[in-house]
Each structure stands twice: as C-alpha cells, then as structure tokens.
Amino acid sequence: MTKWVVKGLKTGIKTTGYPGIHETAEGVSPGRPGVSGIEGTEDFKSIAESCPADALTSTKDGISLEQRRCIDCFRCSRLAQNRITRDDGYEWADFTAAGKPLGPAFTRSVHIRIVDAGACAACLSEIKLMASPYYNVHRLGLFITPTPRMADVLMVAGPLTEHMRLSLEKTFEAMPTPKVVIAVGTCALSGGVFGPSFAAQGGIGKTMPVDVEIPGCPPPPLAIIHGLLLASGKFRKQKDGGAL
C-alpha cells in the first residue's frame, strides 16, 4: 500500500485555485455564444432566428442570448463563420427571482444531495468531476451526502421525467429546512431538447421552487462550483473584496 501513498504524494497538487483566482487553463469551459457587440444586421437576425433551442433572439440593436435555453450546438457560431465567438468564463449561475442563499450558519460546511431527473449523464459526469483532484470541492466545505435527511442543498439535473417526479418530490420533502434547490444544466432549466413532452416536464421549476440556476449543456465543473458557492452564501461578489 505504501506505493500508492508515494504515488499520491509524487503527483503533487493539481487542484485549481478557483474561487481565489480565476482559472484560465484551456478547456475548463466550452464558453457560451458571445453576442455582445453583435450588430443587428439582417444576416445576424436570420442566424438568431435559426437557433434550434430559441436561445437567441434578435433585438433592435443586436442579438440577445438566453443562456438557460442554450444547448451548446455551436450552430450560431458556425453559421456566422465564427463572427459569433465564444465568451470564455464559467461564472454563469444566478439566483431565480425568488431564490435565496442558505443563511450565515452555512458558511463552513454544506451537504449536497444530487438527484438525476433524466439527465444525459454529461451533467452528472461534470458534477462527479467536482470532487476529483482538479476541483476537489471538499476544500470549500462542500460535501456530497447519500441521504436527503442530511442534505442542505438539492442539486437536480435532467428535464424531470414523469417517472422521476415522485422520487424527486419525496427527496425534496425528506430534506430539513432551510434548504435550497439548484437546477443544473439546460434540461433542468428549460427542458432542453427533451421537453416539455408526454415523458418529460421541461425543467424542474414547475414541480418545485428553484433557487439557483446553473445554465450550460453541460455546465463545466467550475460553473457548478460557482452555483454551489452562490447557493451556500459563501460567494461574495468582487466588489466585496474578491471571492470567498
């Protein structure tokens, strides 16, 4: 067994400095369509109208993006021959209109229950990677718990299939208050390519109150960590003197 200990030590620290610093390694995030500064010319209008997920709309002076619908199909960028570039970054999470963070009692440790409500496995894969060496959310006091009784945060991915509705409701009810719900990924926010239909609800917002939304298809691990920090009240905006 000592060889494994030595191996682990030799590997050194791989973990990102986020949220203390901005992570700039290539490939941590696919970005999102960069629509700011796009002029409202005819060809851009037609590109916006051809968006298969209705995430783009053409406005008077340009194009606006509703990222909670965007499914990362890259068709706008490729149709526009890359004149629509990708905005780097990953701090996309935001509170819903009624969403509130957990109280000040949760600044040290937060427990998270993850529920798969019909996700395609890419969101779950990114959630799983949150606990891997590169991201290691334990250092931030964020823990995954197997039981809803101990959970403060309910994290849901997927469009909410009919067959998962009861299980999700039961999980939510089993959690003690105060609790927050985080919807991860475009499917959980707007249904994505799956819904609403006879088998899926088109997002979890119709079934339970969502506090924080993390858009992306799938959102990269850093976006999910950002959402968790927001929901747990650990994240302070830059104007308060840096994150955390």
Partner: peptide
C-alpha cells in the same frame, strides 16, 4: 486526472468537452 485532461484536450480543439 487523466479523465479531466482528456476533457480539456477535447474542449481545446473541438470547442466542447463532450464533443457536442
């Protein structure tokens, strides 16, 4: 670690971590 490296590699050259 290898998995994340591969995802980053994929994203760097194809734009998306899962080849969407």
């Amino acid at each position: 670690i290898s998995e994340e490296k591969l995802l980053r590699l994929t994203c760097r050259f194809t734009g998306h971590r899962y080849l969407f």
